[in-house]
């Protein structure tokens, strides 16, 4: 097999969700009709009857057939902030952005591509948007009215978009509403700054949950689970969306530890417990994904699902479940 670094790369048009799509031109995904986005893919050639063997270039296979070109997209994913700000991935799963509010009272949006490389000047020029610092939802018309908004303009050096909202009271809750190109859907990114952003080297996170030790004692597990749920609620309240994945994954690991105990529950409780744990696992992953994209509604919905699943789990294992079974 060829090493990844030995392979040439090409830019192709693919779907953000269905990476199987590899087109030479922009258009719509044949599966879900999303707009195709430009991605970088490594190129190799394989023989139809031996797809597991890669060749470095085109040519004929041993059986005389023509080798087929194969594209493989690399995983994007460095979501570490570069400027001490709050980092989000856009719902198109391709654009990434980081918002900062520094002591010069300027709100900046740094834009990145799917490899978390700064967006090319051509693409950055197409991005338009505004910073909303105050908005009200009108229940009568079911619309949101913006009370205070500031245009986001490309900086002189093209490195970021900036808006000048002046001095904001902390915690500062602001929303960047962006279109990545003319005619695109507008996305909202909800930022909450507890203080001015400071451009410092970010501490990379790792598999926090893999080092997280789940206690053996059932009551301790339930207590920690309840604490995680409270902590996530606090983070959601504060708008610290990019941080919720840590306690969300810890809650998931705690719940998964309970899955092994379901067989000690009374028969009637087992399905209930498994269903609650399954919901909690799904909700933790939803919270992780919505935390990335920074949309308050999505985060709150995922948090609601997680909190409700945690209540179900607690009801089946906790003291309220009578004998509680699990010992």
């Amino acid at each position: 097999m060829l090493a990844q670094s030995d392979k040439p790369t090409e830019s192709i048009w693919s779907c953000p969700v269905h990476a199987v799509v590899a087109e030479q031109n922009p258009g719509k995904c044949p599966i879900c009709r999303r707009d195709l986005v430009l991605v970088t893919a490594t190129v190799s050639w394989v023989c139809p009857n031996r797809p597991e063997v890669e060749r470095p270039g085109p040519g004929r296979c041993a059986d005389g057939s023509q080798a087929e070109k194969r594209y493989v997209q690399s995983t994007h994913a460095n979501h570490n902030p570069r400027h001490g700000g709050l980092f989000f991935m856009a719902p198109d799963l391709w654009h990434h952005l980081e918002g900062t509010y520094e002591s010069d009272q300027i709100f900046r949006v740094f834009l990145y591509d799917d490899y978390t490389k700064p967006l090319s000047p051509d693409l950055a020029k197409q991005v338009t948007g505004r910073l909303v610092t105050d908005e009200r939802f009108d229940t009568a018309t079911k619309t949101t009215k913006e009370i205070a908004a500031f245009p986001l303009k490309l900086s002189a050096d093209g490195d970021y978009l900036e808006a000048r909202p002046g001095r904001l009271k902390f915690p500062a809750e602001v929303t960047a509403k962006l279109k990545f190109k003319n005619g695109d859907q507008e996305y909202r990114f909800d930022f909450t700054f507890a203080e001015f952003s400071v451009d410092k080297a970010a501490i990379p996170a790792d598999a926090a949950s893999s080092l997280f030790e789940v206690p053996d004692d059932l009551n301790e597990v339930l207590k920690l689970l309840a604490e995680r749920v409270t902590l996530i609620g606090d983070l959601v309240q504060k708008g610290a969306f990019s941080e919720v994945w840590v306690p969300a994954f810890q809650a998931k690991d705690l719940a998964l530890s309970l899955d092994a105990r379901t067989r000690t529950l009374p028969l009637a409780q087992r399905d209930l417990a498994t269903a609650g744990i399954e919901r909690l696992v799904r909700a933790s992953w939803m919270l992780d994904a919505s935390g990335d994209t920074g949309n308050r509604n999505d985060v709150e919905q995922a948090y609601g699902a997680l909190a409700s699943a945690a209540r179900e789990v607690e009801a089946t294992f906790g003291p309220a479940a009578g004998s509680g079974g699990a010992r």
Binding site: P81, A194, P204, A205, A207, A208, F212, L231, S242, P247
Partner: peptide
């Protein structure tokens, strides 16, 4: 990384201090 993760593990026992969670502001591995 290990230092940060050790702190994350500890925070589960002691209750997560805000400063720690705020520093672990990067995304999933």
């Amino acid at each position: 990384r290990r230092a940060v993760l050790a702190l994350v593990a500890v925070c589960v026992v002691c209750g997560a201090p805000d400063w720690l969670v705020q520093r672990v502001d990067a995304h999933k591995p």
